[in-house]
């Protein structure tokens, strides 16, 4: 018998979403990525836009409040909504 270790993932809907028309990360902006206390946001190399990479949100809002173009929306995580 050969048991093989497997990892699986749990899906979740990211509570932080970004309006690609407004996001200027492709112009060099990293404000939302910088200010997130939990370091959950990143720039997607394919689109050049910011996105939520890890769903560990404290719904604290710096990403939305500090975004210079108002491109970031924070929803209350589903488990708390």
């Amino acid at each position: 018998m050969t048991f093989t270790f497997r990892e699986t993932t749990q899906r979740s809907a990211a509570p932080v979403t970004v309006d690609h028309d407004k996001c200027i990360a492709d112009k060099g902006c990293t404000v939302c990525v910088d200010v997130c206390p939990l370091d959950l946001l990143a720039i997607d190399p394919d689109t050049g836009k910011a996105y939520m990479k890890f769903d560990e949100c404290w719904y604290c809002m710096p990403c939305a409040k500090d975004c210079p173009t108002g491109a970031v929306r924070v929803e209350i995580p589903y488990l708390l909504r």
Binding site: D34, V35, C36, P37, L38, P62
Partner: peptide, 12 residues
């Protein structure tokens, strides 16, 4: 651990 601009209990 985070970013001084928005860290800690008073981040907002």
């Amino acid at each position: 651990k985070a970013h001084v601009k928005r860290s800690g209990a008073i981040s907002m």
